[in-house]
Simulated assay, not measured.
Amino acid sequence: MQYSRLGKSDLQVSRVCLGTMTWGKQNNQTDADAQLDYALAQGINFIDTAEMYAVPPSAETYGKTETILGNWLAENAPKRKDLIIASKIAGPGLPYIRGGGEITGEAVIQAVDASLQRLQTDYIDLYQLHWPNRTTPHFGKHWPGQVNFTEVNTQMHSNQMLEILQALDSCVKAGKIRYCGLSDDTTWGIAEYLRLSEKHSLPRMVSIQNEFSLLHTKDWPYLIEQCVHSDVAYLPWSPLAGGMLTGKYLNGQRPAGTRWTLTQRNGLFRDTATSQAAIQEYVDLAASLSMTSAQLALAWVNQVDGVTSTIIGATSMAQLEEDVAAFEVSLNDAKMQAISTVLQRYPVAF
């Protein structure tokens, strides 16, 4: 396993981050225990969770993933010091989480304490804002005209960000969290948080996790350039585009127990004619290169300049083993050119 520094922190994280959002919905405690044991045996030390999980989110599954991870941590206390545990506070919009309200300083304090209790740990290594209070061009809203940036009250949001940073600072000083990060944010969000941190001597954001895959490359190059030059770790989530890049949803297939058989909060907005066409080409290309399409997709994300660690998730051990093995795959110039030929036809397929 290879490791990278997590932005401007002293943490060395594995190039593979184990995502956990299926735990508590598609996976139970026994499944999670097996995944964790296998991941650690492969050298993975970076585990990502959130108060909102399991996914698809619901009031019934809220907090279950952290609870499952916490149960494992309680049973494996000596291993805690070797792990980098990341969690997230939910942004606005879910009525069963603090009434659906925005992230505030008070909400940060409450959420950190609740997560610590569920995780059964004294500290969280990386605490992230799951999504901003303002609307951002993620989750299918990246096409021109879907977000009106000129209608955003810049000063109001900057003031909110400062309040959030001050609350995070209190958590850092109390020893509850070590570092702070973003999720589903933008270049402006990164820059503004860094500006406020420097101006007010507050904790800086050391990472951002955004959706990024062969089907969805909108963060390249501008946001990733911002990350590199600002020393902010870039952590791609959904590198398999919600499982699409495995090919299992081609031609209308819906294998039993898979994510797309469950009700999706934002619908199946990734399922487009363009996505289907691209996936078929990647599946065919992977077969010609003697690898699975999942391994091709993950190996490609891993080699993108500026990527620190890729967040993967699995509902079965077979999937997890296949995905982890992808990070040993080497893509030579000929393979990269073949991938690029497809990518240039479908740079943002959904």
Results as ranks from 00 to 15, higher is better:
residue 82 D to L: 15
residue 82 D to F: 14
residue 82 D to N: 15
residue 83 L to H: 14
residue 85 I to F: 08
residue 85 I to P: 08
residue 86 A to M: 03
residue 86 A to S: 07
residue 88 K to Y: 06
residue 89 I to V: 13
residue 90 A to L: 07
residue 90 A to C: 08
residue 92 P to R: 00
residue 92 P to E: 03
residue 93 G to V: 09
residue 95 P to H: 14
residue 96 Y to M: 13
residue 98 R to E: 15
residue 99 G to F: 15
residue 100 G to H: 14
residue 100 G to Q: 13
residue 100 G to D: 13
residue 100 G to A: 14
residue 101 G to Q: 15
residue 103 I to T: 12
residue 104 T to G: 12
residue 104 T to S: 15
residue 104 T to I: 14
residue 105 G to C: 13
residue 106 E to V: 14
residue 109 I to H: 15
residue 109 I to L: 15
residue 110 Q to I: 15
residue 111 A to P: 09
residue 113 D to Y: 11
residue 113 D to V: 12
residue 114 A to K: 02
residue 115 S to P: 03
residue 115 S to L: 02
residue 117 Q to K: 08
residue 118 R to M: 00
residue 122 D to W: 05
residue 123 Y to Q: 04
residue 123 Y to F: 08
residue 125 D to S: 05
residue 126 L to N: 04
residue 127 Y to E: 02
residue 127 Y to P: 06
residue 128 Q to D: 05
residue 128 Q to F: 07
residue 130 H to M: 03
residue 133 N to G: 03
residue 133 N to P: 01
residue 134 R to L: 02
residue 134 R to A: 04
residue 135 T to Y: 04
residue 135 T to D: 03
residue 135 T to H: 08
residue 136 T to C: 05
residue 138 H to K: 04
residue 141 K to D: 00
residue 142 H to N: 10
residue 144 P to A: 09
residue 145 G to I: 03
residue 145 G to Q: 10
residue 146 Q to L: 05
residue 146 Q to M: 07
residue 150 T to F: 09
residue 150 T to H: 10
residue 150 T to W: 08
residue 151 E to L: 09
residue 152 V to Y: 06
residue 152 V to R: 07
residue 154 T to L: 11
residue 154 T to V: 09
residue 154 T to E: 07
residue 156 M to R: 12
residue 157 H to K: 11
residue 157 H to V: 05
residue 158 S to A: 10
residue 158 S to M: 10
residue 158 S to E: 10
residue 158 S to I: 09
